Amino acid sequence: MENTTGRVRVRAGGRSEKVRVAVGEATLAFLAEGQPDFTVVEVAARAGVGRRTVYRWWPTRDDLLVEALEVHVRRVPTVEVDGSWEDGLRGLAHRLAEFAADPVEVAIAAIMAGGQYPEFNRLVLRQWEPAMESWCGLVRAAADRGEAAEGVEPRTVVEALLAPIFYAPVSVRRQMTAAEVDALVDLLLCGVRKR
């Protein structure tokens, strides 16, 4: 796998994997503190990894951000598309509400909302794309089975789910309650129901 500079990245397994995890977690820690303008040297110090090693594999701040976001996005909830539409959507919504309240995710969302780092926003959205596609698959599967209206736009449904779930921790400083998540899911189910 290559990073944004085209250099071959650290291989999985052994000491290289430990370095990769340490660097990714150190970078996420800076993001959790609301500091997206960290330096490569600061990440190396926090990770307990030599500067040369970090510069060799992640020569720029963007390379470190990509690494950290890949680590973070691996924690994003997934969904089964072969179960019922309601169970799949409800289960995903509750797991997303928990994920959205994670301090790292709250900080990332706040940084993005501030709009001061457009390249950071692009990197985050690029890392989220596979997860978004999988969630859209849940909506498509529901439409294919006749559980959702034909022609419903999957991305619109997913974004309608995500917006309030990720808004609450950033703006009102709390995770959506289970009752609020259920009410949101009920609203979405009603809105996309086959008529």
Rank of each mutant, 00 (worst) to 15 (best):
R7N: 15
G13I: 04
G14I: 02
K18R: 14
R20D: 12
A22G: 08
G24Y: 04
G24C: 05
A29R: 09
L31S: 01
D37G: 05
F38K: 01
F38S: 00
T39C: 00
V41Y: 09
V43E: 01
V43D: 01
A44R: 01
A45M: 03
R46I: 02
A47R: 05
V49I: 07
V49E: 03
G50K: 01
T53S: 11
V54S: 02
Y55N: 12
R56E: 13
P59D: 10
R61S: 00
D63M: 01
D63L: 01
L64S: 02
E70T: 11
V73N: 04
V76A: 14
D82W: 12
G83H: 08
W85S: 10
H94Y: 02
P103I: 02
P103K: 02
V104P: 05
V104C: 06
V106K: 04
A109D: 14
I111G: 02
V124K: 08
L125E: 14
E129D: 13
A131W: 02
A131E: 09
V139A: 07
R145S: 12
G146R: 09
E147K: 07
A148G: 10
G151K: 06
R155T: 11
V158G: 09
P164W: 07
P164S: 07
P169G: 05
V170T: 13
R174N: 07
A179L: 13
A179Q: 15
V185Y: 09
V192W: 04
